[in-house]
Design a protein around this nucleic acid. Structure first.
Lengths: 219, 219
DNA sequence: AATGCCATTCGTGTATACAGAGCCCTTGTC
DNA sequence: GACAAGGGCTCTGTATACACGAATGGCATT
């Protein structure tokens, strides 16, 4: 694989997983030595991260990892509500019913198996699959890209939130409700169930104490 | 200014204004000679254009200017409807009333002066200002960025559409209606007026004959 | 002691050189 | 005459060298 691509994915994973914390300075020379590649692909990776909004230029001092505040989470969920509701609506209009019927069935079983899977990898994989199916059903690449961007930022937040087992069980039921609404071809219900799910997800996310701090970096 | 930044803006302007047409191959060496800079900043510019979706990688042959079809326009307006309606709704909730009252007044006068201004630069500047005010009022940087992306792509389409004077007069009235809805702090009405405007704008855009052709580039 | 100025130094921005990979053209064979 | 294989060539991907700019630390001055 291309070195720039590897560097981008590695740094992105480091940021999303909070191995790189907000305010951390990413120097090109440091990174090129740490990753064992030259500065050119490092520059490409940093450019892409900055375009994604995960890093910010730091006047003459390279780039720093972006801070993410409670206000950011509010704004992100506001946008996610806009995009996810529309995607669910479009999926209800254009999606294949059998696909979402099967997803709903699997989700109803997934809630029962949450305790068997300590890290809930199976559940998260199922949610990711549902996101992908909604994207495909919406048949709108621009909407899909916008959603991918929001999900990238919210993935950072999820790593902070406590994965409360009780919340996960409720979330699974909410996802199932969305899938059933899409299965039945009811766009208004798909929007409503999505909105309910996102409101609850936001409430849960905002319980995270780390989301209050102000950015340690001067702008 | 940085050479990479200049190259990015110049190429982006060339693509939006259709001086560079879809399928056009952008070679790094050609561009570096044409722009009088080295390949490094050219690479940065091409990376950013590809991230924006204005160009696409062309397996081993650099990047080519992306095609834009009628289907793309439909998808773009679908996303724009989602984002613009939400932005207008938020502006009605959070915006400064006096700002939008003044915009509405200026728009009502702008329609009268359309014939005085052959290229309608004053009108378009006013619309751009209104977009900026809505962005600011929505107070959501992520929504703002998503909107900027959609507007970038639709700017390409606008250059193809015939700027019918009659349509512009109606569009000015539609913008005024949106501004008045925001002024009065009525989110539902702001959404409705925005939706009406976008539906009419889409109908007008789809009249462009060039939007049917298939991409001349093999994918 | 605090503050402003200057030199040093680190880091990015740019240019260029090199290597590997993909494509096209040519040539040989069926 | 057509198709396939191989070589050459051009292109991108990467590495490195150089220059300019900003930030920082020290020093002098008030």
């Amino acid at each position: 694989m291309r070195a720039g691509e590897r560097a981008y994915r590695e740094l992105r994973a480091d940021i999303v997983s909070w191995r790189l914390t907000p305010g951390q300075v990413l120097g090109e020379v440091d990174l090129s030595e740490r990753l064992g590649i030259s500065r050119t692909p490092v520059r490409e990776a940093l450019s892409r991260l900055t375009a994604d909004g995960l890093t910010e230029p730091h006047s003459g001092r390279g780039v720093v990892v972006s801070a993410i505040s409670g206000e950011d989470v509010r704004a992100l969920y506001e946008l996610r509500d806009t995009l996810d509701c529309r995607a669910a609506e479009l999926a209800a209009l254009r999606g294949n019913r059998e696909t979402f019927r099967q997803l709903a069935d699997e989700l109803s079983h997934a809630a029962e198996r949450l305790s068997d899977d300590p890290d809930h990898v199976a559940y998260y994989a199922l949610v990711d699959r549902m996101d992908a199916e909604i994207d495909a059903a919406a048949q709108n690449p621009y909407l899909q890209q916008a959603l991918a961007n929001v999900r990238l930022h919210l993935a950072r937040v999820r790593r902070l939130s406590t994965s409360n087992p009780a919340r996960l069980a409720v979330a699974a039921a909410e996802h199932e409700a969305i899938a059933r609404a899409i299965t039945e071809g009811e766009p208004a219900l798909a929007v409503a169930t999505t909105r309910v799910h996102l409101r609850n997800a936001l409430s849960n996310a905002m319980r995270t104490p780390e989301l209050a701090p102000v950015s340690p970096v001067a702008s």
